[in-house]
């Protein structure tokens, strides 16, 4: 496996008005790594990803992808990136065929090539019947599969996945997880954000934990376990983000449900 540097963030800071979303992120990512990128809501995860995709500008610090400084403004580097967005945005008036072909073409693929590949991938996910149906009629899981296909159609070297398994059924989850593992083996780099800790724990070979715009932990799951003397990633997560009242909160919740005392 190559140890070529794919991604480099140097002192990345970003604020919206008074709010400091990112407070100096420095991170190097190498080829073949699956990064579990985790943190509580508002920690700055999606902002980091958006900056790397060129959706947010006006940041301070340096962002290099494949050795190219993205502040230079040439979007060509995006050709090697695949992205599954957080809110599952698609043009849902289009059919799956139209949407996937369009995305493929935007990535610079030939129309016929993109269409054929999309068709094959849809067939593997057992979606051949709905290839010509509009995305607006798709269930959440079907839509998610389309998004995953859209992100991989052009065979990218770097993947940004934001909750890519949401809405998928159990067997599809197993397939996608295996796909990711095999892609990483072949030298693709994956940036995986999620709130579901056990998946992150199993899938990633390196975990980066973000809290209040700073990296508070970085290393393999085993390394984090040794440092924190905790069992699961969930527990480590709670310890590092200083959250330990879940039992107390839960019991006051239940007590209110039963019309009891709030304390």
């Amino acid at each position: 496996m190559g140890n070529q540097k794919v991604l480099a963030l140097k002192h990345l800071t970003k604020s919206f008005g008074q709010k400091h979303i990112l407070q100096g992120i420095t991170l190097d990512v190498y080829q073949g790594e699956i990064i579990g990128y985790i943190g509580p809501n508002g920690a700055g995860k999606s902002t980091t990803v958006k900056i790397m995709l060129g959706l947010v500008d006006d940041f301070e610090g340096e962002v290099e992808l494949f050795g190219y400084n993205i502040a230079d403004g040439d979007p060509t580097y995006k050709q090697r990136i695949g992205y599954v967005p957080e809110h599952a945005e698609v043009y849902d008036n289009l059919t799956a065929r139209e949407y996937l072909t369009f995305v493929g073409e935007l990535y610079g693929m030939e129309r016929d090539h993109a269409e054929e590949k999309a068709k094959d991938l849809m067939a593997i996910f057992e979606l051949t019947d709905v290839f010509d149906a509009r995305l607006s009629s798709f269930s959440k899981g079907m839509r998610q599969k389309v998004l995953i296909i859209a992100s991989l159609l052009h065979n990218p070297d770097l993947l940004f996945l934001d909750e890519p398994l949401s809405g998928l059924d159990a067997s599809s989850v197993m397939i996608v997880k295996e796909v990711l593992a095999q892609l990483a083996e072949q030298g693709k780099t994956i940036f995986y954000s999620s709130h579901i800790m056990d998946v992150v724990e199993k899938i990633s070979n390196r975990i980066v934990l973000l809290h209040d715009g700073q990296i508070v932990a970085d290393g393999s799951f085993e390394q984090l376990q040794q440092q924190n003397k905790e069992g699961t990633l969930e527990q480590i997560f709670n310890e590092l983000t200083g959250f330990n009242q879940h039992e107390a909160i839960a019991s006051s919740f239940v007590s209110v449900v039963q019309d009891g005392d709030t304390t």
Binding site: G54, L55, D74, P75, Y77, Y91, V103, L106
Partner: peptide, 15 residues
């Protein structure tokens, strides 16, 4: 339309 940004903005297409 905010979808444009996520769908097209993330592709190698200039602004």
């Amino acid at each position: 339309d905010v979808r444009d940004k996520v769908i097209i903005g993330t592709k190698p297409v200039n602004a």
